[in-house]
Design a binder for these strands. Structure first.
Length: 418
RNA sequence: GGUGGGGUGGCCGAGUGGCUAAUGGCAGCAGACUGUAAAUCUGCCGGGCUCUGCCCUACGUAGGUUCGAAUCCUACCCCCACCA
């Protein structure tokens, strides 16, 4: 079997690795960890890269450790940030950590021989005593060393608090802790984590005299230069309550041609040969977007399950196949954003603008009116141009549905209540 | 603590008494073209309304001068640089 390093590297997932990492990984399975910040109650597609890496680690016989940053979340990682982060409330951090825990459970196997482990660094960080920390950990680092780190250097102009400056030492402490208690010898992370990871390796070398390793994954950007993981509605989340399977599927389906192959390697477990032949077919007729379809189906099935993926595909076909007006609205409603309108509101002819705001298709009534004036909205697949348009019982289709659309791609189903 | 510079809309950045909801760029949304792509072009881009117009909120915070302030004055808060 190929080593984890070989697999990650042939998939383009290795941005950088510490010297000796490849050799150590070739020598046999390893325990490795990735840290996740509990800044929200769901992961988004950007975090899927390290999640995939952990899953590969497990597939090659290694023991994945998921480290939730319930302790470090109190501080805030300055890496890649231009300004100080607001401090989060403890209850919020804990609630988020629990939500992430549940979500990650879908990507890793938590039983069996090399079961994944999930830990929260709140367990050892929150009760850490300052004097102990300075004596046992702080002593091993010079300020000079810390100032060399990119995360610190880039903030010298605008300023960085001592709190954020110290962050790398805390993360180093985490790695040391996991080395001691879990025999963890590897840390994976985004390439912005390089400085923090090497600090941890340094600490373990000094305190334990042992060589451990770090592999950093590429930070994702799209060919168009845009931030990866954003769509019309903002961030693309893994939680179906935040980004439902239909939107999730659409996000991947809209992938730039130039990104398809890379994303197939990053976000699916498909063998490379299969990916290559899919890309060849794609190149023959890009307009059919076979690559995107494969990518979207695979990732949606991975994150939301096969049946949700099928439903998303069916809904997409109905909507973009040109016959959405005849489609089964109940089925569409099951896979796209819903909002409700009361029967009484329809009888009173509720303004369309109000409903668009409620459905999340407009940020305000003024925004909705401007959008309508610009012919950006449609009701049941017919474009609305009258800013004073109201919805009534006549607009209801198939008993209880009204299909709202913003632009070409953003849909919401309005369900009549009562 | 001292000296100097600075705090403008999601971000960058103009504006230094009325014509400013505030030039320009980025990001975002929509339209045209297309492949639900890319690139390009066009429109929109604080909020509300009884919408060719009207009202509210906004240029660090709080007061003040003025018919009128993002622009002038006072106090305070915060940031940056240098010095102590």
């Amino acid at each position: 079997m190929s080593s984890l390093h070989d697999i990650l590297s042939e998939r383009g997932l290795v941005h950088d690795a510490t010297p000796g990492a490849a050799e150590r990984l070739a020598a046999g399975p390893i325990a490795g960890y990735v840290g996740f910040d509990p800044t929200a109650d769901s992961l988004h597609v950007g975090s899927l890269v390290p999640v995939m890496a952990l899953s590969w680690l497990q597939r090659t016989g290694g023991r994945p450790i998921v480290l939730l940053g319930g302790g470090t979340g109190m501080i805030g990682d300055p890496s890649g940030k231009r300004s100080e982060r607001p401090v989060m409330a403890l209850e919020q951090i804990d609630a988020n950590a629990r939500a992430l825990e549940q979500q990650l459970g879908r990507f890793l196997r938590f039983d069996g021989p090399n079961a994944a482990v999930m830990l929260d660094n709140a367990r050892w960080l929150r009760d850490l005593r300052l004097m102990d920390f300075l004596r046992d950990t702080g002593r091993h680092f010079t300020v000079n060393y810390m100032l060399q780190k990119e995360a610190v250097k880039s903030r010298m102009e605008t300023g960085i608090s001592f709190t954020e400056f110290s962050y790398m030492l805390i993360q180093a402490f985490d790695f040391w802790q996991l080395f001691r208690t879990e025999q963890c010898e590897l840390q994976l992370g985004g390439s912005d984590q390089w400085g923090n990871i090497t600090a941890g390796i340094e600490l373990i070398a000094r305190r334990e005299g042992r060589q451990v390793h770090g592999v950093v994954l590429p930070l994702l950007t799209t060919a168009g230069g845009a931030k990866f993981g954003k769509s019309e509605g903002g961030n693309v989340w893994l939680d179906a309550a935040r980004t439902n399977p239909y939107e999730f599927y659409q996000f991947w389906l809209n992938t730039d041609d130039r990104d398809v192959e890379r994303f197939l390697r990053f976000f699916t477990f498909l063998p490379l040969a299969e990916i290559r032949s899919a890309i060849e077919r794609h190149a023959e007729d890009p307009a059919r977007r076979e690559g995107q379809r494969l990518l979207a189906r695979e990732v949606t099935a991975l994150v939301h399950g096969a049946s949700a993926a099928d439903a998303a595909i069916a809904a997409s076909a109905a909507i973009f196949g040109g016959s959405a007006d005849d489609a089964d609205y109940a089925a569409l409603a099951g896979t796209m954003p819903n909002s409700t309108v009361a029967r009484a509101e329809l009888d009173a002819a509720i303004p369309l603008a109000d409903v668009l705001v409620r459905a999340g298709l407009a940020s305000s009534k003024s925004d909705a009116r401007r959008g309508i004036a610009g012919r950006g909205y449609s009701v049941n697949e017919s474009v609305v141009s009258d800013g004073t348009r109201r919805l009534s019982a006549n607009d209801v289709r198939q008993g209880k549905y009204i299909l709202l659309r913003k632009g070409k791609k953003t849909y919401a189903m309005l369900v009549v209540d009562g």
